[in-house]
């Protein structure tokens, strides 16, 4: 067991972990941040996507110990300071970008990372960026619409094309 310390959603946290403890496990079991989901064991589905030092990361593909000293952001840290939905979250609700909600935290984290780098992506760029995030419910249609809408583009127009 080793001690790890990191900042999660702006708060300093620490805990005891085994060398093999994954960051996703530490977030869920150690910190009770169950918004980060586990959808696979081969780092393929993206349900566990979080930001580590501002970069999009699959938290099941990283040991908790590797995140020692890092700045971590999870879905629980994505809403506005007053608790209202952020622009991306709101766009997902407005455009029905989620059904069962299981892939959703990962999708929101991936979308936030895309828009931070590329504020006005094309539909193809959105689809390409979300390639590592699986959704079994939506057929991606409304997720893509939501991300485009969150970027300030007319999602209705794009979908109608």
């Amino acid at each position: 067991m080793a001690k790890v310390s990191m900042t999660v959603n702006g708060k300093a946290v620490s805990g005891e972990v085994e060398g093999r403890t994954l960051l996703s496990t530490f977030l869920r079991e150690g910190l009770g941040l169950t918004g980060t989901h586990i959808g696979c064991d081969t780092s393929q589905c993206g349900a566990c996507t979080v930001h580590v030092d501002g970069k999009q990361v699959k938290s099941c593909a990283m040991f908790a110990a590797e995140a020692d000293g890092a700045e971590v952001r999870t879905i629980e840290g994505m809403a506005n300071a007053d608790g209202s939905l952020s622009v991306i979250q709101q766009a997902f609700q407005d455009h029905h970008g989620l059904q069962c909600g299981f892939c959703t935290p990962g999708m929101v984290m991936a979308a936030a990372s895309l828009l931070a780098d590329n504020p006005k992506p094309t539909e193809a760029e959105v689809r390409h960026h979300l390639e590592g995030n699986m959704c079994r419910c939506t057929g991606y249609h409304n997720i893509v619409k939501a991300v485009l809408a969150a970027s300030g583009q007319d999602a209705g127009q794009i979908a109608a094309e």
């Binding site: 169950t34 918004g35 939905l85 979250q89 029905h96």
Partner: peptide, 21 residues
């Protein structure tokens, strides 16, 4: 009508079975 359940899912507050300990 926009879905009311979305707010919890979008903020990581959904309660799935694996979240129960």
């Amino acid at each position: 009508t926009k879905r009311r359940e979305d707010v919890r899912f979008l903020t990581g507050k959904g309660r799935y079975t694996d979240d129960i300990n």
